[in-house]
Amino acid sequence: MSFQPVHFYQTGTFTVGNRLLEASERSVQANIERTNSLNSGHRACQGCGEALGARYAIDAAMNAARGRLIAANATGCLEVFSTPYPETSWQIPWIHSLFGNTAAVATGIAAAIKVKKQKGQMGDVRVVAQGGDGGTTDIGFGCLSGMFERNDDVLYICYDNGGYMNTGVQRSSATPPAARTATTMPVGPEPGNQFGQGKFLPAIAMAHEIPYVATATVADLRDLEYKVTKAMGMRGARYIHILVPCPLGWGAASEDTILLARLAKETGIFPVFEAENGEITGNLKIRRKQPVEEYLKRQKRYAHLFGKKPAVATIARLQAAADKNIRKYGLLDQEAN
């Protein structure tokens, strides 16, 4: 069963908090005593979705693990903006791995904890690995697949901003079609990333039939917290893929970060669902369906689609891909249709 929104007027569980809800029904982020795992003073851009997503996720994980958590972090924005030697924003035990091996480092930490626990040298401590989409879907993919296949006791969180943002917005295998990056075709009849390339890692993770796979966005905090909490209640390899808009790499206004994440979900471009042991068990329905243009036109990486001669065919292909997601993941309520 997926996250059940509370229909409790006036804002139910749409807002971060709600003074009308019981304290136990409120979000981790609403709590004055949240960990603030990623503290102020970090050097992320204004309106960074990754910084927000990481605090949302790790605060929820800290809450679920009662503060006993270690994180391994791949190279990428999240590591660079949080921890320029010798200072850090992290308020948890945290280790920087290489760009491509964070899953393996987390596996090692989990193994060490297991041994120490067996020897009675320490109590339970949980392990999280985290990285960007480049570090996860490209260079870190081998280590990650191995971690899945061995069912190591690690929650891996991927913050997907659709590119290698830390090194200047290069294409990754998670870059969406038609989006322009520094390493995609800048001009010509079809600029931007090509269709039919790349990969959707949540589906690949599901193919490993690991205990838990989920997607989330920074626009639906309660759903995100529910998923992290649920994953933390399980053992073995778990994977959460969070869509985190990047104002710099997407060419978007810094205040639009959450709006864009919301539109990605409401258009069907980014399906929000969860799966257990390889089977889909729940999804977050579209509430107010929007055409893909609403999402695309707010981002300069798609500006070439909206020039003097709008790229009608390309937009139609993106719309078709969104519609396919809606069908495939059952994102619309039948009644709402």
């Binding site: 979000s27 609403a30 960074c48």
Partner: peptide, 12 residues
Amino acid sequence: ECDNCYGVCPDN
């Protein structure tokens, strides 16, 4: 007091 501002700030 919906806590949105408190929640959504990436910079805490």
